[in-house]
Amino acid sequence: MLDVEAQEPPKGKWSTPPFDPRFPNQNQTRNCYQNFLDYHRCLKTRTRRGKSTQPCEYYFRVYHSLCPSSWVESWNEQIKNGTFAGKI
């Protein structure tokens, strides 16, 4: 797992997820979920191959910006308990 502190954007620098053409609608539930999944998939494959997990930071920032923190908390809880429904 990456250090969360290191992934926070530097102060004064504004970085928010740009428009994503996969999710052009008002409903952004999938955008949040997909980026959460992508982050964990990225972490998994890159650690397995013994590569740096730094590029996964992008997904982290996107889902961190978009998802309500309560959702992220409950998903993390599910991952810990092995009950997460998504395929990572």
Binding site: P9, W14, S15, T16, P17, S65, L66, P68, S69, S70
Partner: peptide
């Protein structure tokens, strides 16, 4: 340039400035 979240509760709003 900026994302903030607004979460409705019974009966107040929660705001998250995660950026």
């Amino acid at each position: 340039s900026f994302t903030i979240k607004s979460i409705g509760h019974q009966w107040y709003w929660t705001y998250e400035y995660t950026d």
